[in-house]
Design a protein around this nucleic acid. Structure first.
Lengths: 182, 182
DNA sequence: TTTCAATGGTTACAAATGAAACCAGTTTGG
DNA sequence: CCAAACTGGTTTCATTTGTAACCATTGAAA
């Protein structure tokens, strides 16, 4: 059996190290795990809780489904995260007038304070991560990811309410701190 | 309160959509989930099981820890995945002669067959995913990811045997089908 | 109206996960 | 030789997750 010397693609072998799904997952996992330490140590938040906080902090009042779409979380994760943040009195629910199934979620003062404390830490984390790359490399991931996002978009998992890549949750947001309109 | 019009960075707000950890995670999740359908429908494999299969298929005989390092999985995941694949008779364990703690894992004929069947599907999946991007975009993710990988490397989670980014597991591999030497 | 499908959200239950304890076996260093 | 300290690997237990079933409400259709 001859050893192939031109690295990595005997057609009948899959080189995991270069396999996109695997690379993405591994990287995401490492980054996410590292970042989680920040909100975990700091406030004992789980990832769904942090995302809920981040979503509401960014957009102001939202419904649970909107939150799920915006932050790509499963229904039940959102539900549980919201329940917990409510228990901590970091957010409040206000039933919709027209449609009594809907609840509008908003951060309380305490919740907002926590959010405001987290923002600079998050930004610093990202900055530090990117700081080690050259300008071109930064540009590369940014545009590369963007390209994948718009395309992987046709994948998404349609089953259940797990529709990633925000469809139209914008509609459900009111009074967001910065409703950037471009 | 004036509405900022230049999209997205009031310094006190974190724009999730542009936040790297979040983008990575969302993308990885979608891609991974979509890809998982292939091995899930096809063979009823879980992700750890698929990775185990892929690892052994690629490198030939390996120990459990080497597998864990190569595929960035937690000890226990590997252990359980291996147990299941063994139950299916897709792999066999052979105790090391020198060190009786160690077991060398190898795919059986059946396991190898399953692997061989999966490889083209995996490659096709990746190809299809990338096919929608322009050449530059493809180059961008490839190099962007590579850059992040080499750097995020200093993160990794040192706790437990979850050390990502392969240290020296090469040593534990024998008779890999293609021991690409560059 | 009444009925039936869809939608926002929660809950129950089963499966997947991770931390930590654990059981060999191995090495180190008296 | 013997006792730590360590390493490969498994197991136990508590937590997290996802699926599916569920309640309440709404909208559309008959």
């Amino acid at each position: 059996m001859v050893i192939k010397s031109e690295a990595s693609d005997a057609p009948e072998i899959l080189n995991l190290e270069n396999f996109l799904p695997y690379r993405l997952h591994r990287l995401a996992e490492a980054v996410s795990r590292e970042f989680s330490r920040i909100y975990k140590d700091r406030h004992g938040l789980t990832r769904p809780e942090w995302r809920t906080l981040a979503g509401l902090g960014q957009r102001g009042t939202m419904t649970a489904t909107a939150l799920g779409e915006q932050s790509a979380m499963h229904k039940t994760k959102v539900s549980r995260a919201v329940a917990e943040l409510e228990r901590r009195r970091w957010l409040t629910r206000k039933p919709d007038e027209k449609d009594r199934r809907i609840e509008h979620l908003t951060l309380t003062g305490t919740g907002l304070a926590a959010y405001r404390e987290m923002v600079p830490l998050a930004k610093a984390f990202e900055r530090d991560l990117l700081a080690r790359l050259s300008a071109e490399e930064r540009a590369a991931i940014t545009s590369g990811l963007a390209a994948l996002e718009t395309n992987a978009w046709s994948l998404a998992s349609p089953r259940s309410s797990q529709s990633l890549w925000t469809t139209e949750f914008e509609r459900d947001c009111v009074g967001a701190p910065t409703t950037a309109k471009a």
